[in-house]
Design a binder for these strands. Structure first.
Lengths: 160, 160, 160, 160
DNA sequence: TTTT
DNA sequence: TTTT
């Protein structure tokens, strides 16, 4: 049963996030993220392939996305792969794959127009899972308001 | 332009790998890999959701998959997300997402029937990129035969 | 300011975890974890190098470690690097590096003697950060008791 | 034996890289990299803790580091943990932990003075292991000259 | 279609 | 001090 489903992406937003505020106040944001790789083709010419990822963020992270993350910017995303299935109009089973992000860190990049969100981090951590990058990261909290992490609860780590 | 597209999975094979040997001797193997997560639903009941990932491995790793990896087994996969697009019979653009693995490590698990592949690692590394787990990993070499890693080429790393 | 500090390890415990229960009921467990890599030396001989990592786990994960994780077993660890500094008896500044784990998943392996802990996962998630592997993982909760994840709070993810 | 030792860091260089060119033309570069996390202490005050990582890069990546990476800049590092042991002057066994990077991607940041290296990627891949981010990444090649990746050797990935 |  |  041991199971791990982890994705790490650094890429640029193809569009501003689309945010919905659901009944109950839960926010969800979606945006396309591009990663590119280059390679030499058989003629030795440099080629580029761009991969588009459908990013989904929930709750606090969605609000961060709404306020601070814009088309063109570079973000670090940590999350998991999720493939939804649905029936198309002909009743054929179709699949749609997205990345549910539970950690998003802004890396700067080239936001277009308007205000610069800059490079920074928003939110904090409800779990030590991402505590490794707390300030730097806007980590997704499941349970509504962000819960401050009290690191000092960890007593002195003497080498033992 | 800075771009990272990295996936780490631990899961079980839903089927034996399907292997094709292409013109030129290149092998490609595909198999479905399940990861599951559990959660409590609103009634507090434990629920499970299984995610199916389409894994693709090339060359040496495909040969390892063919020989040693079976339905039911647990593997560690490191790779990248790739979404292919194609037209369906009605000319509608469709997408199919797969994980191109460049590192695969067997973790054991419960192979069904026959020979036990056991837990181990096959192949070795052409790049230090995965050298962190060389023996343990069957890392995909792009360029045909596996190239042994000569670690001792790294002179003494004295603290400096 | 954007900052990420993430470690992913799969290895075997060199000893049973040492667990301390602190004032306030907080538990902390420590154990050495071995990862090995193999390589060919300049004579083409297969060599192995073992790396020892000092793993630290807190709270619920420490209790899981205490109960279920034994010398010899294989575990998946996700965490962050932490280097503590201290003065040695001569007043010289020394450093000690450890991995603070916030996700630990048992992969089986060969526990010695006694009861088999088997491969499985214990605990669940307070944050979606590791929700990707909830059942499979014993994720560390900072705030005491594990908080069940209510996935169904995420409404239908229709492709939009 | 299955074993994984993987580190992912995003942080800023504390100093310019120190580069040595070894007999045989092999280059090695070292630099300190800072990651920081913030947390609230028991008085609810925002605190920051900075972690310093000793990064080591070899060969082509070292040359990239020498030319393009400067103090203050932000980089993405992927590598493995390595702890070297040595005897101090009193014959006491001491340990020194470093991160051997096999993938380094520049994220921009704030280089001080002089030329701006900007955000970009240098070098290319000898293994598909990091092919996921080829252009974006300067991946470390063990075997001297970088070997171009011929992606088009991977025939059409039709969904099958 | 896997696993617990 | 683990594992293969």
């Amino acid at each position: 049963m041991a199971s791990i489903n982890k994705v790490i992406l650094i890429g640029n937003l193809g569009k501003d996030p689309e945010v919905r505020h659901l009944e109950g106040g839960v926010a969800v944001a979606r945006f396309p993220l591009a990663t590119s790789e280059t390679f030499k083709d058989k003629n030795g010419e440099r080629q580029e392939r761009t991969e588009w990822h459908n990013i989904v963020v929930w709750r606090g992270l969605a609000e961060v996305a709404e306020k601070y993350v814009k088309k063109g910017q570079s973000v670090y995303i940590e999350g998991r792969i999720r493939t939804n299935s649905y029936q198309d109009k002909d009743g054929v089973q179709r699949y749609s794959t997205e990345i549910v992000a539970d950690n998003m860190t802004m890396l700067g990049g080239r936001p277009e127009g308007g205000a610069q969100a800059g490079s920074g981090n928003y939110g904090n951590e409800a779990s030590s899972g991402s505590a490794s990058n707390s300030n730097a990261a806007a980590s997704q909290s499941k349970g509504g308001a962000a819960k401050p992490v009290a690191y000092e609860e960890e007593p002195d780590d003497l080498p033992f």
